[in-house]
Design a protein around this nucleic acid. Structure first.
Lengths: 180, 180
DNA sequence: TACAAATCATTTGTGTTAGAATCAACGAAA
DNA sequence: TTTCGTTGATTCTAACACAAATGATTTGTA
């Protein structure tokens, strides 16, 4: 692409992208090793926290809640089940469905989990002044806005249609620009 | 004790974390799938872009520039080499080091690569008003600051080019790299 | 010179992630 | 009832990511 040297603006944009990459890296790393609680990895703990909140839950729904592909969740569940942290059970009403729950050991583990990956960030955020926090929040909101226009799903965490939107993120062309 | 939830502040913090997670998901996905150029994945293209800028480069330095672990880069290079996009060469001065360069085909590929994953974000950022851009930039810088102080050693930004546009973000130079 | 320590790339092992294909089961329609 | 399309979970393949260990090489030191 064209190199528009010029202004601070461009530098600032480069700055944003660079910082974003950096934040990614940190959080990713952090959630990869620092989060281990009982020999469990970040995503594993994350899954268990979701389970603690809404078990029994179907695999598909769990995946939706974690913004992950079902096949990914299957792997995570395999490992958790192997560690006896969760239990799978076939639904009797619908034999296709598998519901997942925490075992006693799993509940025990969850109770021990402090604040995980977010702890670091969380503490940092708490230390910010009101003004700084607002700026940070604003900036992120801005980014989400930018991305959101192109297809980012709504807040959710509970909305069933999350997955639908997520699935189209990479193909904004499909989106009819209804959005607000 | 002093855990009084549900102030505006707490909601704002939750907001930040939530938005962050959202941004992660989008960008991650985007860089995983949508970035394919000539059958190449995001990280592969990324590596090639770095190479286009500063080949020949040592594997370790490439890893540093990409904020990735050397062993990860090795895998990426393996695939790129297999596609004849890059070439490895053992240094004659120091037989331990391997320098990587783009092949003719590789240069051809890079020239075709538009703006990849960043394109989406980049365009969005360009459309922001000066003020909004500043706010966004500020917010990110804040986050990096938080993470940088608390626990993020590795970025290192020791290479001149990397922090060219970054500047003074967390100033890790002060720290004697205690890495683990 | 000899020998220990550091460096560099790589290999090995584990885990995360997604997409395609597969298989079983459900639901609706002919 | 049989057929057909769909849904749900899983398996398979491929890539990414990191840590720890390996092997080769260089550097530092006695």
């Amino acid at each position: 692409m064209k190199e528009m040297p010029s202004t601070r603006r461009d530098m600032e944009i480069a700055d944003v992208l660079d910082n974003l990459r950096r934040v990614f890296k940190v959080v990713h790393r952090y959630s990869k090793r620092a989060e281990k609680v009982g020999g469990l990895t970040g995503p594993q703990v994350w899954a268990m926290k979701v389970l603690a909140e809404s078990a029994p839950i179907r695999v598909t729904d769990l995946a939706r809640r974690m913004y992950l592909h079902p096949s990914t969740v299957v792997g995570i569940l395999d490992r958790l089940e192997h560690h006896a942290q969760v239990a799978r059970r076939r639904s009797r009403q619908d034999h296709r469905v598998v519901t997942v729950s925490l075992t006693a050991k799993g509940r025990e583990t969850v109770s021990k989990v402090p604040e995980i990956a977010q702890g670091l960030l969380l503490n940092g955020l708490k230390d910010l002044s009101d003004k700084d926090l607002q700026t940070t929040s604003e900036g992120l909101r801005r980014l989400v806005g930018i991305l959101g226009v192109e297809g980012m799903p709504p807040p959710l965490l509970l909305s069933p249609e999350v997955n639908a939107s997520v699935g189209e993120i990479d193909d904004p062309a499909k989106r009819t620009g209804e959005n607000g």
